[in-house]
Design a protein around this nucleic acid. Sequence first.
DNA 1: GGAACTTACGCGTGTCGTAAGAATT
DNA 2: AATTCTTACGACACGCGTAAGTTCC
Lengths: 204, 204
Amino acid sequence: MEFYQLQSFLTVAREGNLTKAAGLLHLSQSALSNQIKSLEGEVGTDLFQRMPRGMELSFAGRKLLSHAETAVRAMEDFGTAARGLGDNLSGRLSVGLNTDPSFLRIADLDSRMGAKFPLVDLEFLPSQTLATTSLLNGEVLDVGFRFGKSGDNGICEEWIADSRFPFMHCYPVTNRERCFKNQLLHIIFSFCCRKSVEFIFLLK
Amino acid sequence: MEFYQLQSFLTVAREGNLTKAAGLLHLSQSALSNQIKSLEGEVGTDLFQRMPRGMELSFAGRKLLSHAETAVRAMEDFGTAARGLGDNLSGRLSVGLNTDPSFLRIADLDSRMGAKFPLVDLEFLPSQTLATTSLLNGEVLDVGFRFGKSGDNGICEEWIADSRFPFMHCYPVTNRERCFKNQLLHIIFSFCCRKSVEFIFLLK
DNA sequence: GGAACTTACGCGTGTCGTAAGAATT
DNA sequence: AATTCTTACGACACGCGTAAGTTCC
């Protein structure tokens, strides 16, 4: 029984729909379906009733929902506490800009990052929407903006135009070597979350 | 950042010693070392000071300890709540006995299991200590007692002679098909935990 | 030498995504 | 036909253990 399973459980319960939940979690339907099934296996009971129109919490699911919520909140608290004392972060992070920096409010991002993380060196490079993907794959960029979906697999996309932008769920980079950058990206995501822009934040 | 990492963090912090913690968690030194290092990577700071005599919590580690404790407790609460409503468990579980059932207090175990899980069919089979391992591997037994260590890899052993028997940590079976039996084994473990016996409970 | 942790490396399990299947509207 | 969830399957990443390497007592 792992953290990600409980997160998935909550998301599916909240959305009442596996497909939508999978989208929010940046997961395929089948992967999420398997996660839930595996959790149900460990619990020993079904957590959802499979309806023709989606997933509805079962009796056991309703019973366990609050426990799952507190557990997930506690885990997230650990994460934020950890990130809170990471003020000694340092390093370089290359950000690709596909359009006018002022439109992307880069100055704002830069100053807020600089205030909070003086040792972090943000490097901004121009990168056309169509070039961003390959620059990410070539390790030239760590992260970048683009217009519209890329479709490239292995790259995590975040709509920053959507008001319900789930930046709590930006955990695409899991390999150990990138842990450092992961944290910075967490922070950048939280800065970049805004409602009125129609591009995508890319992360390999 | 996953549940097992926080459990490991707590155990190492409590023991102040990676080797001993690895034993309690049924893990190799190196695996645990990697877990801690990976967690430190995500957190962005060292959690321990590596002393010649063991691991000592760093400043950040002390700061995060309480958060980790509440998170782990919350996750465990979820697990116990889940197991609490699993009273409709049913199925068959084969238990190998290497010696006198009365010495193993099998009647006690059986009656308590029967009271709590009337649909669970416990099957007790004789199995010499030396035969138990192969019977487990041959899927004849699901679990069995033996004297002393087996040394067979892929089989999880639990000392039930030790008063500090960590039956909170019996999570060796992870593949999906065995989830059901996993739960029963959890329960059996909690029943079998006693202080004055000198054999080992085997679990493939 | 012994006890501690880290690093290197091959292996296996589990999770992922793609794609096809089943059920319902 | 469209939407939903499940199943099958190949692929890859991650965590594991063994064993060698380092450091300190």
